[in-house]
Design a protein around this nucleic acid. Sequence first.
DNA 1: CGAAAATTTGACATGACTCAACTGGAGTGG
DNA 2: CCACTCCAGTTGAGTCATGTCAAATTTTCG
Lengths: 193, 193
Amino acid sequence: MGIEPLVAHFSKYLPLEEPEQEELRNRTIHRSIKRRQFILQEGDVCRHYTFVVAGLFKMYMVDDNGKEHNLQFAVENNWIADIGSFHSELPSELYIEALEPSNIIQINKPDLLSLYTSFPAFDRNFRVLIENAFVSLQKRMLQSISSTAEERYINFMETYPDLLNRISSVQVASYLGVTPEFLSAIRKKISKS
Amino acid sequence: MGIEPLVAHFSKYLPLEEPEQEELRNRTIHRSIKRRQFILQEGDVCRHYTFVVAGLFKMYMVDDNGKEHNLQFAVENNWIADIGSFHSELPSELYIEALEPSNIIQINKPDLLSLYTSFPAFDRNFRVLIENAFVSLQKRMLQSISSTAEERYINFMETYPDLLNRISSVQVASYLGVTPEFLSAIRKKISKS
DNA sequence: CGAAAATTTGACATGACTCAACTGGAGTGG
DNA sequence: CCACTCCAGTTGAGTCATGTCAAATTTTCG
């Protein structure tokens, strides 16, 4: 197993030279993750940035009533981490759990900082990466404060059509901030129009 | 007027050497903005990153019914921009408007890219900046999908106690995603407990 | 196959919006 | 200094959006 998927991912923004690829190879580790396995649990410090080579994860919070609220999904070629906990090294309030058997590439904080220092290209690559994630999250936030659940669901289907076939409606409902029962009603209404 | 506030701002993360400060001075411009003046309007490309030296701005979207939805406020020492439009150079769907007479420092895209190229410290500074903004936005997103309007308002008061004295309830309601009438009811209920 | 989870359904409760009217300052011009 | 307007804020009635709970049904996966 190599880091080709990761190199290809970065190359979309700024190609990596051979020395940078070599360093990336030396600083990252591969792991296989089973379905329902956690790579982060509440109370633990998030020690890695995780790049999904294959598979699917959800990151979520559990509220005082024990209900899960999905903050983010991550599929192939997505990064996932609790960035706040990763940098502050404080306990996370989030879980990251595999929804499918997955292959990932991880990098820990010392190795990432070393990458940043050795090759400024990584500062830039990760800056661009998070800029894009930020813009997407802003759009979701705007939708959340301006649209009904039905509009948000329709938008979700249009934005992530591939995801629909891989996750349950329960997971979508949790991501949209509605109950599974109400999402079921929305789906029924949409199917009749 | 100098760029001291901006230098001080960056120094919280990573101090700037004299050559970097010099370059920053040469690449930025100062402006005074009147209350109700726009620095970005829907349909225009967002040409600048804006750093607020003094004053207060809101960034918002106007929906099909003509209603405003506040995505973000920016006070002293905050950055504000439509990052998506800035990088894609596509027309923005957002407005950025001064709620108070303000002083700002702006940098356009060519100058910012030049800063990035000349001094990798800026890649890093802006990466850290947006990482922090991303983490904050994630918290707001989680609140949005997991809490009632009352809980979100209480959280807003705790998170931005200073802002409460500077903006109207209408603006807060728009930020929280509720109507002014309903926020009024929430405030009444809270004041009685 | 069998247990666990997902989905649906319906009755009911609560959260939140709409609309229209009213209140009470903060300017503004005479 | 007054009359006036103009907003922000409030109030209440009615309505719609969404949640809760319980139960039945279907699907998934070990």
